[in-house]
Nucleic acid binder design. Structure first.
Lengths: 213, 213
DNA sequence: AAAATTTTGTGAAAGGAGTCACATAATTGA
DNA sequence: TCAATTATGTGACTCCTTTCACAAAATTTT
């Protein structure tokens, strides 16, 4: 297959496929067809095949795909064949919830640091869960700690008013990936990546669908 | 303008516009051009005009859009000119964080009930915040309480293993909108709407962008 | 061993979404 | 009052995404 730019939408679906395949592997299934995977992920079978074809020929005609191999290939494509080290900035309710969010661990995302403006206030709150406790550090130490602990991704869970200045600190600290939970638009220089997780925007979407049907 | 189906993407952007316009209104701005709104929301100005044109002619040529009127129009289109009553199912770390999530209130989303399998274990944990405390009820009462409190949207924050059976209960209770935080695919009958919020999927996306640049 | 069956990989067609460019309308200034 | 300016609304174009449909390859059946 000729080289083509991989669509954003394909990348999003790959991570859905990955999750489905994990469940299948868990369930002991060895082989899966594009039709089966498609129905489990609620997409068109041709879509599945086309998505996979961007990266190579993983299937066997007349048979399907080997679950284990396909999963490994997808993870490699997505850059999930390594552990990603993350920090949480802003240890309020949401921040502490994320500190003990079990699904991150399962998926090779590891929180290795937590920051707040007031480390005193919140200390001890997050500690007891999940084996090794995460100590809460003052935000001023981010640059130093980012280097030391090889942090590549930060989750911003501060109030919206602080989000941009936190983002600036992250940029300065060389943390290239940001998952922004603070409901406000933040901007970063070229080379840095921000993904927003705005609960209310998703709710707006839901509200629209509900009120227009 | 002729009738057209409104693209999903347009709906998503409308809620971005809505948030930007709120900030502008707060800042005392009376009039805004498509170019200004576009730059604030990081989209193309023609895109803004086209998105708005789906619903009517809100602007004045040579002038722009009245912030207040436009905001009201967008909110009406999105179905946000009412209060949406919600329940949270599964009061673990994430569930409790959402119970006291301040941005919901600002945006006319109100949590009016909280459910868990074990209401004893978690009681009191969520109470003190934000004025009126939310009492945690046993999940078995969902059908009764949904009717009584006119619940239209449920947030699923249970472990993934329980998500589908919770969804079944919600369907039975006539709750048509579901925001699913449990990292597993759930299915509901025609007429019901599920929106997924999978943190790890978004992280996967981020990881891909980071590792391929 | 040949025919029937299954299921992939992909070119081509269809469908959606985003951008451009300009006619149109309102305002401002001389 | 008329020209210059500003900024909308939208047809046409381009680009991206999805779906269709079928040849190619592997397996199973007879």
């Amino acid at each position: 297959m000729k080289y083509q730019k991989i669509p954003e939408a394909t990348i999003r679906r790959l991570s859905r496929y990955s999750r489905c395949l994990e469940e299948m592997e868990q369930g002991g299934e060895k082989v899966v067809s594009s039709a089966q995977l498609a129905s489990k992920c609620m997409v068109n079978p041709a879509q599945v095949r086309k998505d996979l074809a961007y990266f190579g020929e993983f299937g066997i005609r007349g048979v399907g795909y080997y679950v284990k191999d396909l999963l490994a290939s997808i993870k490699k494509v997505l850059g999930l064949n390594k552990e990603w080290r993350m920090a949480v900035i802003g240890i309020g309710n949401l921040g502490s919830a994320l500190l003990s969010y079990k699904d991150f661990l399962k998926q090779n995302y590891k929180i290795v640091a937590a920051f707040d403006i007031d480390p005193q206030k919140v200390i001890g709150r997050v500690s007891e869960k999940l084996g090794k406790p995460v100590e809460i550090l003052h935000i001023s130490r981010i640059k130093e700690v980012a280097k030391e602990r090889k942090i590549e991704i930060a989750l911003i869970t501060t109030p919206p008013s602080e989000a941009q200045s936190v983002a600036n600190l992250l940029v300065e600290a060389g943390i290239r990936g940001i998952l922004n939970f603070a409901p406000t638009q933040i901007t970063v220089p070229e080379g840095f990546v921000v993904k927003d997780v705005f609960f209310t925007n998703i709710l707006d979407n839901l509200a629209y669908l509900l009120s227009s049907s």
